[in-house]
C-alpha cells in the first residue's frame, strides 16, 4: 500500500505493507542509514527517532501508524536547538567509541532536553535507560546531557 510520510520536513512516497517498521523504510528505501538496527524489538534503542518530537523506536513503529506526524532522524536533529546542543556536548565530552548506538542515544537525549531543559539524574536515567551502549559510554553520556542542559542557561 502507498503511504506518504514526512521525514525531516520532506514528504516521501513509499509502497510497502502497512506493518513495515519505519526503521526499514528509512534505512533501506530512503537510504537514511544514520538510524541503526540493533535488535528489532525495542530493546536496545539504536533505532530511536522522533515522531512529532517524541523519542520512538522505529523498529517497532509500523509505517501505517505514522499518519501525518513528522519524523525527525539523526540526520536532521542538529537543526533543532536541543539536538544541536546535544551534538556539541557529545563532541566536547568525546562520548562516542564504536558509535553504533550513538544515533539512538542522541535522539533520546535530544527529546529529553527538548521537553525537560533541566533534567535531574533520575530524569536522565528514565529517558536513557532504553538505550544500550556495548562500549559502555554511559558515564560520558550523562555528563554530556548535563553539559547540554547547562549550556541552555537559566
Amino acid at each position: 500500500m502507498a503511504y506518504t510520510i514526512k521525514v525531516n520536513g520532506t514528504a516521501h512516497n513509499i509502497d510497502v505493507d502497512g506493518d513495515t517498521p519505519l526503521l526499514w523504510v528509512l534505512r533501506d528505501l530512503l537510504g537514511m542509514t544514520g538510524t541503526k538496527f540493533g535488535c528489532g524489538m525495542a530493546l536496545c534503542g539504536a533505532c530511536t527517532v522522533h515522531v512529532d518530537g517524541v523519542a520512538s523506536r522505529s523498529c517497532i513503529t509500523p509505517v501505517d501508524s505514522i499518519g501525518t506526524s513528522g519524523i525527525t532522524t539523526i540526520e536532521a536533529i542538529g537543526a533543532t536547538a536541543a539536538g544541536a546542543k546535544i551534538q556539541k556536548a557529545w563532541l566536547d565530552r568525546e562520548v562516542v567509541q564504536c558509535g553504533y548506538c550513538q544515533s539512538g542515544q542522541i535522539m533520546s537525549a535530544s527529546a529529553l532536553l527538548a521537553s525537560n531543559p533541566h533534567p535531574t539524574d533520575g530524569d536522565i536515567d528514565d529517558a536513557m535507560s532504553g538505550n544500550i551502549c556495548r562500549c559502555g559510554t554511559y558515564v560520558r553520556i550523562r555528563e554530556a546531557i548535563k553539559q547540554a542542559a547547562q549550556s541552555q542557561g537559566g
Partner: peptide, 26 residues
C-alpha cells in the same frame, strides 16, 4: 579529539550494515 566523532554524532558514519551498493537487495 577523536577524528571519527563528528560523523558518529550526525548519522553520516558508514558501518558495514550501511553499505548500499546500487540495486542492492536485503
Amino acid at each position: 579529539k577523536r577524528l571519527d566523532a563528528p560523523a558518529k554524532v550526525n548519522g553520516t558514519a558508514v558501518y558495514g550494515i550501511d553499505a548500499r551498493p546500487p540495486g542492492v537487495k536485503v
